[in-house]
Amino acid sequence: MEWFLVTSAAVILFLQNYPLYIRSVPTENELKFHYMVHTSLDVVDEKISAMGKALVDQRELYLGLLYPTEDYKVYGYVTNSKVKFVMVVDSSNTALRDNEIRSMFRKLHNSYTDVMCNPFYNPGDRIQSRAFDGMVTSMMIQVC
């Protein structure tokens, strides 16, 4: 049962920096991830404000590693509309390179775009889309 130890949490944040969607595996210590992601927002904010100086069209959405902790690595991604995606992956998972993380974020972004296209979704509400859920789940399993 190796892969149970391997954890990752995908979090999506909306403009005002509150979570639209949080998923974590394992679920028992979710609060830890909340803290982790919450504090990582400082870095995200900092990176965004630094990016603000760059030209808009040249902006890289992927923020890279936000900060490493002892057990996890926190990656960030921000859309042009300042929706933030934060992903926490287990540090021991060396298979995940920057490129993989980047493509995962892109997938997440596409899925998120689909959610926003739903006319019944109120921007700013918690995401409860099943399709999105499924996508995240598949991504998490893949990570594991």
């Binding site: 803290y35 919450h38 504090t39 927002l41 400082d42 870095v43 904010d45 900092e46």
Partner: peptide, 13 residues
């Protein structure tokens, strides 16, 4: 110090 560099969340943590 975190507060000093504007990392309020980290500071709070």
């Amino acid at each position: 110090l975190y507060e000093l560099i504007g990392f309020h969340r980290k500071s709070a943590f």
